[in-house]
Amino acid sequence: MIADEILDRARETVARNLARTPLLPYHAAGLEVPVYLKYEGAQPTGSFKVRGGVAALTAYAAEGVPVVTASAGNHALGIAHASRLLGAKSTVVVPEGGSPAKIAALRTYPVELVLAPGGYDGAEAKALELAAGGRKFVSAYNDPHVIGGQSTLVGEVAETLGEDFTIVVPTGAGGLLAGTALGARRARPDVRVLGVESAACHAVSAAVAAGHVVTVPVGDTIADGLVGNLEPESITPAIVREAGVRLVDVDEAAIRRSVRELALTAGLVAEGSSAAALAALRAGLVPADRPVVLVVSGRNIAAGLLATILTEG
């Protein structure tokens, strides 16, 4: 579905522009097999999304195409950081009512920042309007170069461990999961990939089961990176289905407990989405027949929310 050439170029680009993130032994897991935390909070933007941003901007800059995206979260910061790193032109459209902290952070980057009314839908509509004028719209997940960038994470793990393992991946729209599935088949003979959704949203698993994208209900959760419906022509479910990836889900209480555990036991700041892999392990959803790698996908959690969670229980 995504050419090997794109995956190869992404690997070279990410290795050239981003330092490897740490793979930390997690002895507190209490399993007989080794457990590791792949900490993407160490990325310069605090999230794995910068991998896809760097890969996509490098590819489209080589084609001489300026890019535009819609996001007020980790994807926007990834595109913005890549723009500064590569000297590439990009436009980031964010909702007028978006996070003041994230908008302030985006203003520090050399991007054209556009504020659009109407929430995320309004921002996306504005970005697509700009794309119609000659720019390339770069989806946070439904873009082959973005997915190629995310595929580099599992390759780093494989090169460090040198043996087969199970990798547990937080799953929202499936960009990281699809990338991991594609990267896993190239990294080791037998890497098992497990996707973890929030119980608040089953967009990817529903699409995999149906064989096409379907609209699903979206509940409230602190794991905001794991909720939202998919673009109608999203390529991620087909990649996940073809790779035979198993999907599980975890509830809100489990996610909050895992944010707290990562902070107090591992000393890692993790946003709600990032804690889903550990939540799945604690729920007994991860086979323990080989080394396990839990992807901690980012650290961008509001200070007040983190303080509240730390005092729970």
Rank of each mutant, 00 (worst) to 15 (best):
V245C: 10
S205K: 02
V54C: 08
P110H: 04
G228N: 14
A181D: 08
S234C: 11
G272S: 13
A283C: 10
C201S: 14
S234P: 05
Q150V: 14
V33Y: 03
E163G: 07
A61T: 15
E32P: 12
E124L: 14
L24E: 14
T215K: 03
V168I: 08
Y39L: 15
H27G: 15
T108D: 13
T308Q: 12
L310Q: 00
E271N: 09
F137N: 04
T108Q: 15
L177D: 06
L306R: 04
L86H: 03
A184F: 07
R185M: 10
I222H: 03
A125H: 14
A302V: 15
E231H: 12
N142Y: 04
A302T: 14
A10Q: 11
G97K: 13
V191R: 07
V259Q: 04
P217V: 00
L285C: 05
R16W: 02
G148C: 11
R185F: 13
Y141E: 12
L153G: 14
V216M: 03
A131W: 11
S273Y: 01
G195N: 10
R257T: 11
E5T: 15
T108V: 01
I309R: 02
G122I: 09
T152M: 08
K49C: 03
A288F: 07
V218F: 00
A116M: 02
I309D: 10
P66D: 01
T221F: 06
A238G: 13
T308L: 14
I255Q: 03
V168E: 02
A203D: 11
A61D: 15
A277D: 00
I103G: 12
A263M: 11
L278A: 00
L194K: 08
G30H: 00
T45R: 01
I239C: 09
P44T: 06
V193R: 11
G119S: 07
V193I: 12
L268G: 06
R188M: 14
S274C: 14
E112T: 15
D190G: 09
G133D: 15
A181R: 05
Q150F: 15
T221N: 09
D289F: 00
A140V: 12
D289Q: 07
S71A: 08
D289A: 00
S139M: 04
G149Y: 07
L268N: 13
R256L: 11
I309A: 05
R282F: 00
S151E: 10
V196E: 01
G148L: 13
V92W: 03
V67F: 06
T21W: 01
E271I: 09
A76D: 08
